[in-house]
C-alpha cells in the first residue's frame, strides 16, 4: 500500500534538514519526512472538526430527531402504508437496477479491458457521462424522450404504456445514474490482469462461458462486490433524477428519498427523520460492508503475496 505522502511541500522542505535536540546526553532525531508535533496535531484537529461539523452532527441529528417523540411515533412513521410502499418501491428499483448494471458493467469492462476496437475511448467517456451530468438533467432527458410531449410520448400513449410518472421511468433514471459504478471499478482491475489467463483457458479447450466462470470471475469478484455495494447505495439514495420522472404519487411512485421530502414539506418532521434514519442506516451498513470487503481483499492479496 502507498504511504500517504506528506502534505505541504513548503513545510517539508524546511523539515528535510534533521533537527537534533541535545537532551541528557541523548540525541533525538526526527525523521526527515515527519512534520513537527504542532503541525501534525493541528492538521488532525482540523480534519476532526470538519468531520464532526459536516458528518457526525448531521448523522446523529437524524437519529435524534427521528426518535425525539418516542419509539411509537418512530415505528408508526415507518409502518405507515405510504412509507411501506416507498420502502418497497426503493427495494424493487434497486433489485432491478443493480443486476442490470452488474451485467452491463461486466460486459463493458470486459470489452474495454480485453479487446481493441474503434470507439473504445468514446465508450469509456460515455460510461462516465452519468457522473458528469446533473441527476436532474438525467431525469429531464427521460421526460423529454418518454414524456407525453416527448418523442415517444404519443406512441406510448397510444399503446397504453406508462413510463414517465410510473415505476419504469424511476427504474430507467436510477439505472442511468448508477451506470458508472461497477464498470469503473472493474475496468482498471481487468486491464491490470491482462488476457493471458483467458487465452490459456481457451487454448486448453474451455468455452467462452467456462473461461468467464472459472477464470475471469474469480479474479474480479472482490472488485465486483465492491462496485455492486456502491451501486446499490446510490440506487436506493438517488433523489434528483428520480424526483423528475416519478410524479410523487403517494403509495405508488414515491421512493424513500422522495417520501422524506414530502413528509418534511408537510412539517411532519418526526416521520421525515424516521424514514431518513433508515436511509442513514443503509449508508452505515454500506460503509461497514465496503470496509469489510476492502479488508478481506487485502487479506486475500497478502495471502497471495501480491501486495
Amino acid at each position: 500500500m502507498v504511504e500517504p505522502a506528506p502534505q505541504h511541500a513548503s513545510l517539508r522542505t524546511i523539515m528535510t534538514t534533521t533537527i537534533t535536540f541535545p537532551l541528557a546526553g541523548k540525541t533525538f532525531r526526527q525523521r526527515a519526512t515527519q512534520e513537527p508535533v504542532w503541525v501534525r496535531r493541528s492538521l488532525i484537529g482540523l480534519a476532526l472538526v470538519f468531520l464532526t461539523l459536516f458528518l457526525f452532527v448531521p448523522l446523529i441529528s437524524v437519529f435524534y430527531e427521528a426518535l425525539k417523540k418516542g419509539m411509537e411515533v418512530y415505528v408508526a412513521a415507518i409502518t405507515d402504508p405510504d412509507a411501506v410502499s416507498a420502502i418497497k418501491l426503493t427495494l424493487l428499483v434497486a433489485a432491478i437496477a443493480v443486476p442490470l448494471n452488474l451485467i452491463f458493467g461486466i460486459a463493458a469492462a470486459w470489452a474495454i479491458a480485453k479487446f481493441e476496437f474503434r470507439g473504445k475511448n468514446l465508450l469509456i467517456t460515455l460510461i462516465d457521462l452519468p457522473f458528469s451530468v446533473s441527476p436532474v438533467v438525467s431525469g429531464l432527458i427521460y421526460v423529454l424522450v418518454f414524456g407525453l410531449q416527448g418523442w415517444l410520448g404519443p406512441w406510448l400513449a397510444e399503446h397504453d404504456l406508462k413510463i414517465i410518472f410510473a415505476v419504469p421511468g424511476i427504474v430507467l433514471a436510477t439505472v442511468f445514474v448508477t451506470v458508472p459504478f461497477i464498470a469503473r471499478e472493474l475496468i482498471p482491475l481487468m486491464q491490470a490482469q491482462g488476457t493471458e489467463e483467458e487465452e490459456a483457458a481457451v487454448v486448453l479447450g474451455a468455452s467462452g462461458w467456462q473461461t468467464f466462470y472459472h477464470v475471469t470471475l474469480p479474479n474480479i469478484k472482490w472488485g465486483l462486490l465492491y462496485g455492486a455495494i456502491l451501486c446499490n447505495a446510490r440506487a436506493m439514495g438517488e433523489f434528483g433524477a428520480v424526483s423528475v420522472v416519478s410524479g410523487h404519487i403517494r403509495g405508488s411512485t414515491n421512493t424513500m428519498p422522495l417520501h422524506v421530502e414530502i413528509l418534511y414539506n408537510e412539517y411532519n418532521f418526526a416521520a421525515a427523520f424516521a424514514v431518513a434514519s433508515l436511509l442513514a442506516l443503509l449508508a452505515l451498513v454500506t460503509l461497514a460492508l465496503k470496509t469489510l470487503i476492502e479488508f478481506r481483499n487485502k487479506q486475500h492479496q497478502k495471502q497471495r503475496g501480491l501486495e
Binding site: E196, E197, E199, A200, S207, H214, V215, N219, R304
Partner: peptide, 24 residues
C-alpha cells in the same frame, strides 16, 4: 501453449491448474 509469464490460473491450486483442460 506455454506463455512467457506462465499465465497460471491464480485462483486455482496447482492440481486444478493442470486438471483444467480435462475438467472443461
Amino acid at each position: 501453449f506455454v506463455f512467457q509469464h506462465y499465465a497460471l490460473f491464480r485462483n486455482m491450486t496447482i492440481f486444478q491448474n493442470v486438471a483444467f483442460g480435462l475438467n472443461v
